[in-house]
């Protein structure tokens, strides 16, 4: 199954990550502005690290993360691939799923995407998250997997 091509996530996931990057940079922008106005150092100095941070968090990283992520759903298992620097490639057989979540934050709701979360009984990888799915896809995947989850019998 490692040879199967991965399904790409929804492109608007990149936009969501960009906005999240923007929100993360905002406090730094404010801090840098205050520093510039205080005239402790030359006005352009605080701007340099903030611009670098913004380019990484808004420009580069969302795209890289989008391209590194992907999933492959076969008849009895789900494969989730992620990671820019540290790769991780997890396979969860449906027969081991304890319960399922479809989650949506406010930003994700705005763009109509959702996260599918698979919970297993294992201590490691107790929950495997697959973000950036179209909300409709996520719910239909959940229904598909739920067919396999018989009865939790711990």
């Amino acid at each position: 199954m490692d040879t199967e091509p991965l399904t790409q996530l929804d492109p608007s996931y990149t936009t969501v990550m960009r906005i999240e990057g923007l929100i993360t940079t905002l406090p730094f922008v404010i801090g840098a502005t205050v520093l510039s106005l205080a005239e402790v150092v030359p006005a352009y100095v605080p701007a340099i690290p903030v611009v670098i941070l913004a380019v990484i968090l808004i420009g580069v990283l969302p795209l890289k993360r989008y391209h590194s992520r992907g999933y492959d759903m076969s008849t009895d298992r789900l494969r989730v691939v992620k990671g820019v620097l540290f790769h991780s490639d997890t396979v969860v057989p449906f027969s081991r799923v304890q319960h399922l979540d479809v989650e949506q934050g406010p930003l994700e709701r705005l763009f109509g995407i959702a996260r599918l979360i698979l919970h297993t009984a294992g201590t490691h990888n107790a929950s495997v998250t697959l973000p950036g799915l179209r909300h409709g896809d996520a719910t239909s995947m959940r229904e598909g997997i739920r067919q396999h989850v018989k009865r939790e019998s711990m």
Partner: peptide
């Protein structure tokens, strides 16, 4: 076992090795 993960850091990707981690209860 409950899940299987292949994890690779930058060095592992360079030298083609990885960690194989199993999800096991307890």
């Amino acid at each position: 076992l409950h899940s299987v993960e292949i994890a690779q850091g930058p060095l592992g990707r360079w030298h083609n090795y990885c960690d194989l981690v199993f999800g096991m209860a307890g």
